[in-house]
Simulated assay, not measured.
Amino acid sequence: MIVKKTLSLKSIFEFTGYHFLWLTGWMSLVTTVYYFFSWSILALPWLPLPLIGTAVVFYIGFKNNQSYDRLWEARKIWSEITNSSRMLATMITNYRSGESSEADGELIRKQIVFRHIAYLYQLREQLLEPTVWEHVSMKSSWGTGFYNRQRRAKLTSSFQEELEAIAGRKYLSVEEKIDLQGYKNKAVQLLNIQTRMIQQLYKNNALNMLQQMEVQAAIRNFYDSQGKMERIKQSPFPREYATFSFIFVCVFIFFLPFGLLGEFERLGAFGIWLTIPVGVIIGWIFVAMEMISDYCENPFEGLRNDTPMLSICREIEINMLQTIGENDIPDLIKPKSHVLI
């Protein structure tokens, strides 16, 4: 997630700058052929272009809204997990049955909090696994896949110190780590263990029935939230919307210089050369709108526009450790180059 009020020119160029190259090439080719060969047939009437452009803008606007909804829903789900995690730590720390002493089940209570922190980081790791339709998985799309894999690797490496610190904190026992290797969905298995441990507290009279039901309800909330995020992760944005949006933008840009030629020719012999800069700017605007919606589709891709899961997990980790009275508290994740992951 970018945590800066405005993007720098460098960031904008890194995101969309390479499109200026082919846009300039296309506008220059059409204009040059028209000027030197006097092919008047290339100058199309201007009227169809605004009609096509208006339709494309409405279509891209719809796609942008739907893509942003996916991104914002992902952020709201992580907010639900944040609130439920704080509630879990509070209940585990303070709930006592009338028959238990202050020290009853303290080890299990602490293990539940530690295991939940491990669950959060495991869930993040699972959500970052690329799917075939994400940008980092693209194989042959003008180098886009390779470029985004490089961007993701560079972004991850900038937070390498924080990731190593997380790996060094032993929230799971060696036995639990070994046992998890046999499960495909490790995060779900951690919740399953949590349920058993809470039930154990109840059997040991460390929690009464009502308290046990409330704590189990919190675990159920994590199942629900994880399922919602997996739905977003495993359900691509409808490909017909994404594909036709890209095609419509390409069609508009293809015809754009032909419509501009006749208009700028009215300014004189050299006026038609304005087709190049004006066409590049108009084409870039449409491409940028398409790219913004395209990159909002996948909020768990690990790129800089995505949900900052690492910083959210760290914030929850700090809150839970402080709730149970731990002294070894890690620092918040700080932005690197105005980006949080």
Rank of each mutant, 00 (worst) to 15 (best):
E99D: 00
V174Q: 13
I324Y: 09
F300K: 07
I282G: 07
Y59A: 00
N208V: 04
H135L: 13
Q181T: 12
H19M: 08
P238D: 03
L155G: 06
E106R: 13
K10C: 03
L51H: 10
E326W: 01
R231C: 02
F237H: 15
N204Q: 15
M27I: 00
K334R: 15
V287E: 11
S293T: 03
M291P: 02
V251E: 09
Q216Y: 04
I41P: 08
H135E: 13
V251T: 11
K170T: 00
A269I: 09
D328L: 02
F58N: 05
E106C: 12
G325D: 01
M138P: 03
W22Y: 13
L107V: 15
M87G: 02
G17C: 08
G168Q: 11
I92R: 04
S38D: 14
I333H: 06
I281Y: 06
A242K: 13
M289Q: 01
Q181G: 06
G283E: 04
R124D: 06
K170Y: 03
S101F: 10
G182P: 01
E301R: 12
F146I: 15
Y121I: 10
L256C: 09
F246D: 11
L23Q: 04
G25P: 09
N305I: 14
N64D: 08
D104C: 07
I41A: 15
E102G: 05
Y121C: 09
Q194R: 04
P257N: 12
L29Q: 10
A288L: 12
K184N: 06
G17M: 08
G53E: 09
E175Q: 12
M91F: 12
V56H: 10
D328P: 02
R75V: 07
